[in-house]
């Protein structure tokens, strides 16, 4: 590991001025579970910018009107330990509680998971199906980007030079809604997804018909994917409409464009996109029924 400077700005503005001061390669530190590992593997930076002193970046709060605000540097375990998340956003518990180990969950953050932009990241699909927005600070002030539009490629996002992710805003769940996330890994913990999927549904007041649906899949394309066709296949359909669910799975399989690597093959990942889409939809419907 090479020597680098370390700064812990106290405000968004201070962070922006440090970022625009021409400090060379900047590594932004939230939990550090990706950054520090990368530094140990030879990534060179000139400045490490620690977000954990910035109030907006570590806040975790809920408001009935604006929903859940997750600071980019909020740890996974803080998120899944928050009673509002447990009662109203179980899909966020699904994803934040299965990343790495408990030690990793105590350090790692959803913001870092987004900015590291691994195609196999476990939090984006759930955050995407919940209709969330990324709040980005930059030299020209704040801008907002839909979660599904945040990623542009492996390790790449819409973040421009001088910008950083401040927080993620997750809307208040609608009545009669449910969301669910799962991944497939060969072990039962400590693993990277071979494929993952999330689904959210809003049911009618009788809880028999799907009014809105979103499906997202991961580890099967250069970025996490919102599969619009999968959601569309479910809208207006009965919760027990097997053909509609199969159509959604087929849409996921069609959207997946994975690679083969030591974690899985193209065929396996396309197949799993369908299997996990089905299980995510069934899980989301079940939760909506129980809501």
């Amino acid at each position: 590991m090479n020597a680098f400077d370390y700064e812990a700005p106290q405000s968004v503005d201070e962070a922006i001025s440090l970022l625009s001061a021409g400090n060379g390669n900047v590594g932004i530190l939230a939990g550090g579970t990706d950054l520090i590992a990368q530094l140990k593997e030879g990534r060179k930076i000139d400045l490490m910018l620690d977000l954990k002193q910035i109030p907006e970046a570590t806040a975790l709060s809920f408001d009935e009107d604006s929903g859940l605000s997750i600071g980019a540097a909020t740890s996974c375990s803080k998120i899944y330990g928050y009673d509002v998340v447990q009662s109203r956003y179980p899909a966020l518990v699904d994803c934040t509680s299965l990343i790495g180990s408990i030690q990793i969950q105590n350090r790692g953050t959803v913001g870092g998971n987004f900015c590291n932009a691994s195609p196999a990241a476990d939090t984006p699909p759930a955050v995407i199906v919940l209709g969330s927005t990324c709040r980005i600070a930059g030299p020209n002030g704040m801008r907002e980007v839909a979660a599904e539009d945040f990623f542009t490629g492996p390790g790449q996002s819409v973040l421009q030079s001088g910008e950083f992710l401040v927080s993620i805003q997750v809307p208040t769940p609608a009545a009669n809604s449910g969301a669910f996330f799962l991944r497939f890994i060969p072990r039962n913990e400590m693993d990277i997804a071979v494929a993952n999927a999330a689904a959210s549904v809003v049911l009618d007041s009788e809880k028999t018909t799907i009014q809105e649906a979103r499906v997202a899949i991961g580890a099967v394309a250069p970025t996490p994917l919102l599969v619009a066709d999968a959601g569309a296949a479910l809208v207006g359909k009965a919760v027990d409409d097997e053909d509609a669910i199969e159509a959604a799975c087929a849409a996921s399989r069609a959207a997946a464009r994975p690679i083969s690597d030591m974690r899985g093959t193209i065929e396996q990942r396309i197949h799993l996109s369908g299997v996990l889409t089905r299980r995510a939809i069934q899980g989301a419907i079940q939760r909506a029924k129980e809501s």
Partner: peptide, 10 residues
């Protein structure tokens, strides 16, 4: 991580 020995959950 990728040389997958079983964990206690396995």
């Amino acid at each position: 991580l990728d040389y997958r020995m079983p964990t206690c959950l396995d």
